[in-house]
Simulated scan of single mutants.
Amino acid sequence: MLTGLPRPAFTTLLFLTAIVLGSLVGSLAPAVGSELGSVVDPLILLLVGVLFFTLRLDGLSALRRSRLVVALAIGVNFVVIPLIAWPLSALLPSDALRLGVLIYFLAPCTDWFLGFTRMAGGDTTTGAALIPVQMTLQLLLYPVWLFLFAGQSAASSFGSAGPTLLTWFVAPAAIALTLRLVMRLTLSARVRAAVVSGVDRAVPFVIAAVIVGIFAGNIETILSDVGSFAWVLLVVFLFFVVTFFVGEAISKVARLRYREHALLTMTTSARNAPLMLAVTTVALPDQPIVAAAIVLGMLIEFPHLTVITHLLRGRAARVDQPPRPLETV
């Protein structure tokens, strides 16, 4: 999300509420839970559409101006983080949980990280330019990760869902981008910004609706092994701790300026759970545990991003402190 990012505490509470609500409905009224589960597919279409509608396509020239931080961001997100994610996911007790957590880990965020970057005083221009690049890379690499980390069977499942995925993502993306073009031709910049901001603010609520449907329709499967999901939260926490210190070390070695450092920290910390949830729900429709693991990752992510935002802001205050004037005798 961009300028319309709701407060992280509220967003985390919203997702927690969605999990509890979906779980209660699925447990106490299974028929209603089944009905709610059946609306996940259209909600995923809506989610994909709003994600593409709010996609930032401007500022691509910043990629040339900030080649070092762009190269570091792509290198860490698509080379270093997979090397971190693989051994951490091995701590989980089941293949489905490992796959869900890996899918969550391996996709860098393409929306709300920019809001946190802005709050931390980071380079949002380059961050906006990274969004379409990283979204394209993670979608292209998705079947590769399935093949490497889940084996041929999952890759085959993805391959059989290929035409469906094409329909599900090309159609809403085309509609969303066409609407953006129509807006550009018919509306002023101020009105366009207000519309995009309003849609942006709606994204967490769409995600929450998807979460309600997933948990309402699959709570019995999820509750069959509660202890395993506690391991998911622990592994996600360890992942964020490790990636934070890796980012700190790389920023120091590369001698990044503060704004670049803040951008690298945020883009390597935030994960793209909404898009991966959408892709996985379509590519692996009979794997509710995988989808639930992706959702649970967000419960750790938002508090983590809030903490590092405060850490970075404190550092920025020290970096930007003006020098004392020379004393006169």
Rank of each mutant, 00 (worst) to 15 (best):
W112Q: 00
W145G: 05
D95S: 15
W112L: 12
T164P: 05
S94I: 07
F147T: 14
L114S: 10
S160A: 11
F158V: 06
A107H: 06
F113W: 04
A71K: 13
Q134C: 03
S160D: 08
W145N: 05
P108E: 08
D111S: 15
R98P: 02
T164Q: 11
T124R: 02
Q138I: 10
G115N: 09
W168F: 14
L88E: 00
V80C: 01
T164E: 10
D123M: 07
I81T: 07
R118P: 02
N77E: 05
L140I: 15
G75S: 07
A96T: 14
A85V: 12
G159F: 05
L114F: 03
T164M: 09
L148R: 11
I131T: 15
A107N: 08
A96G: 01
S156Y: 09
P82E: 01
P163I: 12
L140C: 08
G162A: 15
S157M: 12
Y104R: 11
I74P: 04
P132E: 01
F105A: 15
A120L: 01
D123K: 10
L140P: 03
L146W: 00
M119I: 13
F149R: 02
G159V: 03
W86F: 15
A120N: 06
S94Q: 04
I131Q: 14
Y142E: 06
W168N: 14
A107I: 02
G159R: 07
L72F: 04
A73N: 10
L166T: 13
N77C: 14
A155Q: 12
T136Y: 06
I81M: 08
V133P: 03
V80Q: 03
V70W: 09
L165A: 01
S156W: 08
L99C: 13
P132F: 00
V80P: 06
A128H: 03
L88Y: 00
R118T: 05
R118S: 08
V133Q: 01
F149I: 08
G151W: 10
A107K: 07
L83D: 05
N77P: 03
P108W: 05
D95V: 15
L137W: 09
L88D: 01
T124G: 01
S160K: 10
V76I: 15
I103C: 00
I103K: 06
T164I: 12
S157T: 14
C109N: 10
P87Q: 04
F78E: 00
G127S: 12
L165T: 03
L99T: 15
I81H: 01
L102E: 06
I103V: 15
Q152E: 09
V79C: 13
T124C: 08
V101F: 02
A90K: 02
V133R: 03
A96R: 05
I74N: 03
L92H: 00
S89N: 11
L72R: 10
G122K: 11
W145C: 06
G122Q: 12
A161V: 11
L92V: 04
A107C: 04
F149S: 07
A161D: 08
P82V: 00
T125M: 09
Q134A: 05
G162M: 14
G122W: 06
S153T: 14
S94H: 05
L97P: 13
F147W: 14
T126Q: 09
A90H: 08
F147M: 13
W168D: 13
R98S: 07
T126K: 12
A107R: 07
